[in-house]
């Protein structure tokens, strides 16, 4: 091994050691990693040349330069010290952590409620199923909380910042040189939630229909019905209960107005009547006899079972889509807030 090669080998070993210790966010960016190591190497050569006092630096000079550079662990530690400490997380990652918790929480709620709806729809042991659902939600929340906390603590310790996670983040330089010409145009805003008036209308409508379905004196008007509704009345009562539940939520949403957190809570709660709705229609499919015979009297020869099946499938699909839409609203509220609030934020220019 020549003398020059030996010096290069020493530096290569140092580069490898530093590279191993560097935080993950830097290792994931190959260009930045190479540039960082190149810069450290350039520094070592500069230092070694200085130590050699005009002579060609030898291995002793290089070794001394590496020693003065500090240990790879200390160098890496400085790269990890990027975020502002807040509890065990960096303040920069906290908003991401809360958003992730919310998204995971909503997904846990959605999947458990959906599972509950389909299980109740095919079984009669409602109490046990509801109990299992709450257990599932609790377990899901705890698991999600623990897993996300561990992930975000590790990311904070590694010095990750949101810009390392974002795939197409604008570079800071772009932001710095951005200037606004003329008065800013009002952004096109699309409302995340319906207006308070719509909520109020939906709430009153659902409450009215709900109470009507429960307290309607069916027996007094039996002569007006086209078929015998005796077996269907308890089912309609349950549907009324779900509608009242939904109405109360809509009414509450009208009352809380543009309070993001409360709106998110009510949107989350609205998943419960939706899932119960699915369960109720699946139960109807399971016990289709309560509808089949009266409808056969009305439409003799028709394949009533098939029509009921198709109707239930459509209702279930529409309800699931509605639940997904509510979840997307929760997430959009978390990430964007209400459009009106956004308009007050003015971009910084330098």
């Amino acid at each position: 091994m020549s003398y020059k090669k030996h010096e290069e080998q020493l530096i290569k070993e140092f580069r490898d050691e530093v590279s191993k210790k560097l935080p993950l966010w830097l290792k994931l960016n190959a260009t930045e990693l190479r540039e960082t190591l190149d810069e450290l190497e350039s520094h070592i050569w500069d230092k070694a040349e200085d130590l050699a006092k005009g002579e060609e630096p030898n291995a002793i000079h290089v070794r001394e330069a590496i020693y003065q550079m500090g240990s790879p662990r200390d160098i890496a530690k400085e790269f990890k010290r990027r975020g502002t400490p807040k509890f065990y997380l960096s303040a920069e990652l906290c908003p991401w952590y809360y958003k992730s918790l919310l998204i995971v929480g909503v997904i846990v709620l959605f999947t458990n409620l959906l599972t509950m709806a389909f299980t109740i729809g095919r079984s009669d042991n409602i109490g046990q199923i509801v109990g299992q659902t709450f257990e599932g939600i609790f377990d899901g929340f705890v698991t999600g909380f623990v897993v996300l906390s561990v992930i975000f603590i590790v990311l904070s310790m590694q010095g990750f910042l949101p810009e390392d996670i974002r795939s197409k983040a604008k570079t800071t330089k772009e932001l710095v040189t951005k200037t606004i010409k003329g008065p800013p145009k009002a952004p096109k805003v699309k409302s995340v939630l319906p207006s308070q008036g719509s909520f109020l209308f939906e709430g009153i409508f659902s409450l009215t229909i709900g109470f009507l379905l429960i307290f309607f004196p069916y027996d007094n008007y039996s002569s007006f019905y086209p078929f015998d509704m005796t077996q269907l009345i308890p089912w309609l009562g349950l549907l009324g209960g779900i509608m009242i539940f939904k109405g109360v939520i809509k009414f509450s949403q009208a009352l809380v107005g543009k309070h993001v957190r409360f709106q998110q809570i009510f949107l989350g709660l609205s998943l419960i009547p939706s899932s119960l709705n699915i369960a109720l229609f699946l139960q109807l499919h399971l016990n289709s006899a309560i509808l089949r015979q009266p409808l056969l009297d009305l439409f003799p020869g028709a394949d009533i079972a098939l029509y009921i099946k198709i109707g239930v499938i459509i209702i279930v699909i529409v309800t699931i889509l509605e639940m997904i839409h509510e979840i997307s609203r929760i997430i959009r509220l978390e990430t964007r807030g209400f459009p009106e609030l956004e308009m007050y934020e003015t971009p910084r220019t330098y």
């Binding site: 450290l40 500090g70 160098i75 790269f79 810009e163 800071t172 330089k173």
Partner: peptide
Amino acid sequence: EEGTLYPILRKLEKEG
């Protein structure tokens, strides 16, 4: 410390 200068410079560069 020599090794700690570069993280500082990199951070300042990232911040524009």
